[in-house]
Simulated assay, not measured.
Amino acid sequence: MHKSKKDEAIACPLCGMAGAMPFIEIEGQAYHACEQCEIRFLHPRHHLPPMAEKAHYDQHENDVDDPGYRRFLARLLDPLLAYLDQNPAGQSLAERPLQALDFGCGPGPALAMMIKEAGHHCALYDPFFHPDQAAIDPGEKAGAYDIICCTEVAEHLYRPAQVFDQLVKLLAPQGVLAIMTCFQTDDARFAQWHYRRDPTHVIFYRLRSFHVLADRFGLCCHSPAKDVVFLKKAGQ
Rank of each mutant, 00 (worst) to 15 (best):
H120F: 12
A100I: 10
A100S: 15
H120D: 10
M114A: 05
L111W: 15
C105V: 07
L84S: 08
A82Q: 12
K116P: 03
E95K: 00
G104L: 12
P97C: 07
P127Q: 01
Q99M: 12
F103Q: 04
A94R: 05
S92Q: 08
L124I: 11
G104D: 13
D102N: 14
H121A: 00
L93K: 06
L93Q: 15
L124G: 11
F103K: 05
Y125R: 00
H121F: 02
P109E: 09
Q86K: 14
G104S: 11
I115M: 09
P97K: 07
P109D: 11
A118K: 05
C122K: 09
I115Q: 03
P107E: 12
M114P: 01
G104M: 11
L111A: 15
D85I: 00
A118H: 00
Q91K: 09
D126W: 08
P109T: 13
G104F: 13
Q86P: 04
Y125V: 05
S92R: 14
Y83P: 06
A94H: 09
K116G: 01
Q86V: 04
A94M: 01
Q91P: 02
Q99E: 15
L84C: 11
A123G: 01
F103G: 05
M114F: 02
M114H: 00
I115R: 01
G104Y: 14
A89I: 02
A89E: 12
Q99D: 11
R96W: 04
R96Q: 11
D85G: 04
L93G: 09
A100M: 13
A112Q: 12
P109Q: 11
P88D: 07
A123H: 07
Q86T: 10
E117L: 06
E117A: 09
P109M: 09
C122E: 08
K116C: 03
N87S: 09
A110L: 14
P107R: 15
L111Y: 15
L101F: 12
Q91S: 07
G90T: 08
D126C: 03
E95V: 00
A112I: 12
Y83R: 13
C105Q: 08
A94D: 05
P109G: 12
I115N: 08
L124D: 07
P127Y: 02
A110D: 13
A112S: 15
D102E: 15
E117C: 00
I115E: 01
P127C: 04
R96V: 06
P107F: 14
M113T: 13
A94E: 05
P107W: 13
Y83C: 04
A112K: 10
P127I: 01
G90S: 10
P127F: 01
I115A: 12
P107C: 14
A89W: 12
P88C: 04
K116W: 01
E117M: 07
P97E: 05
G90Y: 11
A110Q: 14
A100V: 14
M113R: 15
L101M: 13
C105E: 07
A82K: 12
A112W: 13
G119L: 00
L98N: 10
Y83G: 07
N87L: 09
L124T: 06
D85Q: 08
A118S: 02
P97M: 06
